[in-house]
Simulated assay, not measured.
Amino acid sequence: MTHHTPAVIEFREVSMTYGGPPPVQALQPCDLTITKGEYVVIVGPSGSGKSTLLNIAGLLDTPTRGTYLLDGIDTQKISEAQRAALRSKRIGFVFQSFHLLPHRSAQDNVELAMLYQRVDRRTRRNRAATVLNRVGLGHRSHALPTHLSGGERQRVAIARALAAEPSLLLCDEPTGNLDSATATAILDLLDGLHREGMTIAVITHDANVAARGERTITIRDGQLTETPRAIRMSP
């Protein structure tokens, strides 16, 4: 193959054991590659190891064993400060519970994501306005989260995740707190980002969310299996 798509996430024999007593192996040794531009869904029951997988991929936890390469960088061979910098630059997080600061505007919440990167104020302001427009919330940029609907709050959270121009968007149950119509709108937004080339990994137990991905990885008792699937038909 002449065209080699670079891997954004590469796990090599990655496993995670939490100390006991008794010790718990939350993730069995696994290999996983997610290449640039893929939309991967990770499904599994509660307690299966989904959160552990997300925390390792998001550089929130270090695996007990194995190697994790993010954009080709061996994440175990860098300092904690370098890991934090890598996380803030390369990874955008979207959680079920939004994690917005209630007394700061949508614009401020998005700008705060760039503070760690020493981005100057004017650039922060312009970039925040751009990503809020991109998620359809430019007209609500000065609103406080308490004055926004759940769907609008999740759009702000997605804008915040995009502000750093990450190479990877990690979403943990991104529609878990939303009604079905709002959830569909958020999933359509993620579809649009994927079409623009964003690499997306979504953790979910919701079949409607899982149906959106190109690849489905199932995790059960800490073991990963990949489900081959038919090519998704466009609606």
Rank of each mutant, 00 (worst) to 15 (best):
T130M: 15
R125W: 09
A161T: 03
G92Q: 01
L169P: 01
L70V: 09
H103V: 00
L137I: 03
G72T: 06
P102M: 05
A57Y: 02
H99T: 11
S149R: 07
A164H: 01
A164V: 06
R122H: 14
P145M: 13
R124A: 06
T75A: 09
L60S: 14
V43D: 02
P63A: 03
H147W: 11
T67E: 15
R83E: 08
A106V: 05
E38N: 01
T35M: 05
R134F: 08
V41K: 09
S149Y: 10
H99R: 07
R153Y: 04
V40T: 10
Q154E: 14
L162D: 05
A81F: 13
P166I: 02
T52Q: 09
G72A: 13
K89P: 02
I158L: 01
I91P: 00
D74C: 12
C171S: 07
N133P: 12
V110M: 10
N126A: 14
S105T: 13
G72L: 07
P45D: 12
I91H: 01
L86D: 05
R65T: 15
A159I: 02
S105N: 03
H147N: 15
E165W: 05
V135I: 05
I91K: 01
K36H: 11
R127C: 08
R124V: 03
Q82N: 13
R90W: 03
R90C: 01
R118Q: 15
L86V: 11
R122K: 15
G150R: 02
S48Y: 07
N126M: 05
A129V: 07
S88K: 10
A113H: 06
L101F: 14
